[in-house]
Nucleic acid binder design. Structure first.
Length: 292
DNA sequence: CTAATTTGACCTCA
DNA sequence: TGAGGTCAAATTAG
C-alpha cells in the first residue's frame, strides 16, 4: 500500500477520533465474534449513549476543520480547538459512562493466565486501534479459530527496562464495515512512566493495521515522521501514531494532540484512571460532565 | 548496524 | 488435545 493512500485514509478518518468505546460492546470470550449489545432499554441507556457519541463525532469533525484551517491567526485556533475538545470529551465520557453502566467490562477471559490478569483486562472497539498514547511493540500474531482476521499481540515498549506488564491485542472485527473496526483488548496497567494513556484512546489517529488490508508487509512506512516540535511526544509512542501529521506538501497540520490534548493531559488525573476495572468513577468525576 | 516486525515453535490452560 | 499466548530466530527497513 502506498504511503500516500494511507495518509489520505488517516486524514479522511480523523473525525473518528474519540469514538473508541470501552463499553460499547461487551467483548465475547472469543473476541473474534461479535458481542451483543444489551438491548434492554431499562438496563442499558444505549440510545442516549449513541446520541452522545454522535455529538462527539460532530464535534470531532468541527475540530478537524479548525485544526486544518490555516486562515485563523495563531492562538485563536488553539483556543477554539481546546473548547471543542473539552466538549468532545464530555460527550464521550458521558456516553462511556452510560454504556459502561450496562455493558460488561470484562473482555475475553479465555486464555487469560491468572485471576489478576483477568481482573486487569478491558477492551475497546475502534476503527483506529493504534495510537492510545503508549508505546507498543508487536511480539506476535495468531490466526484465531473463530475469527477471519488474525490477532496481533503487543506489549509495552518499556517492558524490558521498566518491567511494564501492559499488553494489548488488536483484532479486526469480522464485519465488513468501513472503516474496519478493531477489538483492542488491554491487559494489565502500565507501570512505566509513559504518557497516561488510556485516556488517549480517544485520540487514536493512525490506522497502522491498514497495511494489512492493503497487503503491505510492513507498516513502518505508513506513518509520516513527526515534526521537530513534537518529536519528544512522538518518541513516547514509537509504534503508535505521531502527535501531528505532516502534509505531503511539506507543511505540518496540527493534530488534536499537539494543540490541545497535551494541555488536557497536563491536568489530567493519574494515568491509569481509565481502567475500566477500578477507577472509572474518578474519571467521571474529573470530567465533571454536565449531563447526560 | 540497529531496531522493529514476522512467523513458526513452544508453552499453558481448560 | 486444541486454542490462545509468548518466545525468539529470521527477516526487513531505515
Amino acid at each position: 500500500m502506498a504511503t500516500n493512500s494511507c495518509t489520505s485514509w488517516m486524514l479522511a478518518h480523523k473525525e473518528t477520533i474519540a469514538l473508541s468505546l470501552p463499553g460499547r460492546q461487551a467483548c465475547s470470550p472469543g473476541m473474534g465474534q461479535h458481542a451483543e449489545v444489551d438491548s434492554n432499554p431499562q438496563r442499558c441507556d444505549s440510545r442516549l449513549a449513541i446520541d452522545k457519541i454522535n455529538q462527539a463525532h460532530e464535534l470531532a469533525r468541527q475540530l478537524r476543520a479548525v485544526l486544518l484551517s490555516s486562515s485563523l491567526p495563531a492562538g485563536s485556533s488553539a483556543e477554539l480547538a481546546r473548547e471543542i475538545v473539552d466538549k468532545l470529551m464530555k460527550c464521550s465520557a458521558s456516553a462511556l459512562s452510560r454504556l459502561q453502566s450496562c455493558c460488561c467490562r470484562t473482555c475475553h477471559g479465555a486464555g487469560q493466565r491468572s485471576r489478576e490478569r483477568t481482573q486487569n483486562t478491558w477492551c475497546t472497539v475502534t476503527s483506529v486501534p493504534y495510537d492510545d498514547g503508549h508505546s507498543w511493540r508487536k511480539y506476535g500474531q495468531k490466526d484465531i479459530n473463530s475469527a477471519r482476521h488474525p490477532r496481533s499481540y503487543y506489549r509495552c515498549i518499556h517492558r524490558k527496562e521498566q518491567g511494564c506488564p501492559a499488553t494489548k491485542t488488536v483484532q479486526q472485527e469480522d464485519s465488513d464495515a468501513y472503516p474496519p473496526q478493531f477489538i483492542v483488548a488491554y491487559s494489565m496497567q502500565h507501570t512505566c512512566g509513559s504518557m497516561g494513556a488510556s485516556i488517549a484512546f480517544a485520540m487514536e489517529s493512525a490506522p497502522k493495521e491498514e497495511a494489512s488490508f492493503e497487503g503491505s508487509r510492513s507498516s513502518r512506512h505508513l506513518l509520516p515522521p513527526p515534526p521537530p516540535s513534537t518529536a519528544a511526544a512522538a518518541n513516547q509512542s514509537q509504534t503508535s501514531s505521531p502527535s501531528s501529521v505532516g502534509d505531503q506538501d511539506g507543511t505540518t497540520r496540527l493534530s488534536i494532540s499537539e494543540l490541545s490534548w497535551q494541555e488536557i493531559m497536563n491536568t489530567s488525573p493519574p494515568a491509569n484512571t481509565w481502567s475500566m476495572d477500578s477507577n472509572w468513577e474518578s474519571v467521571m468525576g474529573w470530567f465533571e460532565f454536565s449531563e447526560a
